[in-house]
């Protein structure tokens, strides 16, 4: 979320006018019963869509996830560090991914951290050099050849992710990109090594599937590391 170019009226927009369904609408409406029934039905439909989209995404991206996990596990084995980043809700999702890799509930803890964790650094860079550079400049400071990054976006159009992907590529950092819709500019960027796209036009459903996708990536990295150790 938080990308400025999200189209209004995504598929599950809550602003749809359902007034005709209720006998007493507007300020005359007093009985919450019909609304609660409708809300619960809507919740069930969203849960169904979320789960099936995640399953379809995992199936459609299995080849790309395997390839990304192989490349990442090789870099982790050689001491590579994973950096994650995104804007808005995607920044917290990127933090979640870093937490999963570095403090996993099971398996090997791996060096991973999110580049949106420190407001002093974000505001210093945003104020002094512009928000388009908040991730690229951190990569310049920290990243080395052999490291890797995951750029998370729903639109695939965030300028600061595109700039960071270019910078990462220049420095020999493996670039994994997650996006929604049709993948946007990010998924097609020549700087991106592995594109994982959730084919949906709902920001919320995209983020839920991206979480499932990131977990699949983490699982596959763990399996690769176990296999290599054996």
């Amino acid at each position: 979320m938080s990308e400025p170019n999200e189209p209004a009226g995504a598929s599950d927009a809550p602003a749809e006018n359902t007034a005709f369904l209720y006998p007493f609408i507007d300020s005359e409406e007093r009985d919450p019963g019909p609304l609660l029934v409708d809300l619960a039905a809507s919740a069930r439909a969203k849960a169904v869509l979320s789960k099936s989209l995640a399953a379809a995404t995992i199936e459609a991206t299995s080849g790309a996830v395997s390839a990304a996990a192989r490349a990442m596990s090789e870099r982790f084995q050689r001491g590579g560090v994973l950096y994650t980043f995104g804007n808005g809700g995607s920044s917290s999702d990127a933090a979640s991914v870093a937490a999963l890799f570095s403090r996993p509930p099971s398996g090997q803890a791996l060096p991973a951290r999110c580049l949106t964790e420190d407001p002093a650094i974000l505001t210093a860079l945003g104020n002094d050099v512009g928000f388009e550079l908040v991730f690229a400049r951190q990569l310049i400071a920290h990243a080395r050849s052999g490291d890797m990054c995951i750029a998370m976006s729903t639109s695939g159009g965030s300028k600061n992710l595109l700039v960071a992907a270019d910078e990462a590529r220049k420095r020999g950092v493996l670039v994994v990109a997650m996006a929604g819709y049709d993948g946007g500019t990010l998924a097609r960027s020549p700087s991106v090594d592995h594109s994982l796209v959730v084919r949906s036009d709902s920001v919320h459903r995209i983020q839920e599937s991206q979480a499932a996708l990131a977990m699949q990536l983490w699982r596959t990295v763990q399996l690769e590391l176990t296999r290599k150790a054996a």
Binding site: N17, T18, F24, I25, S27, E29, R30, L35, L39, S42
Partner: peptide, 8 residues
Amino acid sequence: VCFDHPGL
């Protein structure tokens, strides 16, 4: 969605 139902 609830905000579309001011009476509630």
